[in-house]
Design a protein around this nucleic acid. Structure first.
Lengths: 250, 250
DNA sequence: TTATCATTGTTTCACATCGAAACAATGATA
DNA sequence: TATCATTGTTTCGATGTGAAACAATGATAA
């Protein structure tokens, strides 16, 4: 059976395998030296951009569907996914982009197909290691790449709102969860961790206060080792404790 | 056209008016002197109990659908509703109760009807004034009444999990939102407010600390008046400021 | 009229957190 | 050996909170 990773599925693509009128869209966060990024898809022969999304199989849990979509786009598995909101305004319906995307891929949905009506989308976000991701376009799109959080292209539907909402929740929970676990490498300096937090919160943090707070949180483990560097005291390396809470991010 | 408030709709009930495979379930919180309560439906000729729920019309925003369901069950409108989670595990499917409920109401869904498969449900919760609610059974159910938060009957599907999750989020946000606005009357004493918080959090709070915290939050307005009472100093009356934040609860 | 008592409002103390800043440590470079 | 940038630690003041003492008040009983 054809699946949604097949970039050019035929008209006979089996839409009946999915729950109708329901979708999942993922805000996939990654982090590199120059800031927080999000994975965005581009579509053939159009100027449309969207979040990576997909549909839910009839015998598939919604969390599993989100995991599948994440793996299809990044090659990563075993990443914690956070379901953050369901979007279902009437205004989110926007048949034109969907119609054009579909037609450019050889599928012409009938006018009453749910794809061209308002449907509900479940928002999930994930934190992944930027360096380990192999971006894979798929499911109609022909590009899949990172965009800085402040340099996003215009997105279809209400995907900009989805990004905004995901960011809001990420910021709300940033100090109570082990946010850096998937966004940084195994070992990092306190300065690197602070830069990550500054990118997420989009504000400067006070160095010594941040240091204390993170150390007191109990989430970090100091690895006696130090890092070779420049003309200054060399920093410690830290990692996240693996033994602490049940859920890494929850 | 028949609508879902019609208690005895015919076989010809028009399921096509709704989005398929998608539902809304509401955790409706009320508060009286003896604690926090939730509205629960009971079904004719069965021992099944459930949260008040319903389906989403094809041209209806999901938030509006939740409002409609709330009004159908309580007669109340203009209440803030909080969408808190989407439930879509495979295990939540439980065709037997649904089948029996439907058959007892003269509707026999075919075995492949989505009502008998796994469908996704969006959880909303609302805080309403217990005294103003006129519980109205409807949409298949023949009873609609309050149950204490610790005396809930066994609920169908994953509705117990929904209650648990709604409570978790209510507790998380209890100090940052004007929780009491809809749960208490216009005026109340600090002691009454504290009892409400103790019911929600299910723990004893320290009187003086609570007093200070609430006064410092800026959400309360002290009404110079006092209350006649017993052999002791009479308390002030308070109300929530109406001019402060944009969203009462958000 | 006065003493008593329960409840409410206010204040105080100890402790923890956090921003801000001072201070100490360190490791390469001049 | 002196200098300098960066990192780790400590200190100080402001604020929030638990705990408890203290003050105010209004009905009841003596």
């Amino acid at each position: 059976m054809k699946n949604s990773r097949d970039p050019d599925f035929p008209d006979s693509f089996n839409w009946g395998q999915f729950l109708p009128a329901l979708a999942i869209d993922c805000v996939i966060f990654g982090y590199s030296e120059d800031g927080l990024k999000i994975l965005i898809l581009g579509y053939k022969n159009t100027s449309f951009f969207s979040l990576p999304g997909g549909f839910i199989r009839k015998k598939e849990a919604i969390d599993d569907a989100a995991k599948r979509i994440l793996e299809e786009r990044t090659g990563l598995n075993d990443i914690y996914l956070n379901q953050f909101y369901a979007f279902g305004n009437l205004e989110r319906s926007d048949p034109e982009p969907m119609k054009m995307i579909m037609e450019n891929n050889g599928f012409t949905p009938s006018n009453d197909h749910w794809l061209l009506q308002r449907f509900v989308s479940l928002g999930y976000f994930a934190l992944v290691n930027y360096k380990r991701v192999k971006p894979r376009p798929g499911f109609l799109s022909d590009s899949c790449r990172w965009y800085g959080i402040h340099e996003l292209p215009e997105l279809i539907f209400d995907h900009a709102k989805m990004v905004e909402q995901a960011l809001k929740i990420l910021r709300r929970d940033v100090y109570s969860k082990r946010i850096g676990k998937n966004l940084l490498f195994e070992m990092f300096t306190m300065g690197e961790l602070q830069k990550l937090y500054e990118s997420i919160l989009d504000e400067k943090l006070h160095r010594t206060g941040f240091h204390r707070k993170m150390m007191r949180s109990g989430l970090l483990k100091r690895l006696g080792k130090k890092k070779t560097g420049g003309a200054h005291r060399s920093p410690y390396l830290y990692s996240f404790r693996s033994d602490k809470p049940k859920h890494t991010i929850s």
